[in-house]
């Protein structure tokens, strides 16, 4: 990579970091079987998208990216609350959070 040797922190640095974190989140969703860890990987992916939004906002001098981050955070909080409630309800009924065993909606 050429941009490692330049001396300035430019936009592509932050975008690259955001992409790496997003891909780690994708790997976490795909390889883990524990529903809570899959959920945390989704939070990681939301965070990496927030990072790219903030870096665009700062480098272009536009506040709309930061406004969008607020809404993403609010939706992430709502999603976490409902998702964890679903996990609790599932655990009460099936005594497991292994997603391979939660397959009653599978045809």
């Amino acid at each position: 990579m050429i941009f490692i040797f330049s001396n300035m922190v430019s936009l592509d640095y932050f975008l690259t970091l955001s992409i790496i974190l997003f891909s780690i989140g994708v790997i976490g969703v795909l390889i883990r079987r524990n529903a809570i860890i899959i959920f945390m990987s989704i939070e990681l992916m939301l965070n990496s998208v927030n990072l790219s939004l903030i870096s665009f906002s700062s480098f272009m001098g536009d506040s709309q990216g930061q406004i969008l981050v607020f809404f993403v955070m609010a939706v992430a909080a709502a999603e976490a609350a409902v998702g964890l409630a679903i996990i609790i309800a599932l655990f009460r009924n099936k005594e497991t959070i292994n997603i391979d065993e939660i397959n009653i909606l599978k045809w």
Binding site: F3, S10, L11, D12, T16, I20, S23, M60, G61
Partner: peptide, 27 residues
């Protein structure tokens, strides 16, 4: 990841090298 990094590198390398001067006031 490689595809996305490649896309970013093609489109954003050497563009926007400095944080905007307005960044402090807008945030």
């Amino acid at each position: 990841m490689a595809l996305l990094v490649f896309t970013v590198y093609v489109n954003f390398a050497d563009k926007y090298t400095e944080i905007s001067t307005e960044a402090e006031t807008i945030s």
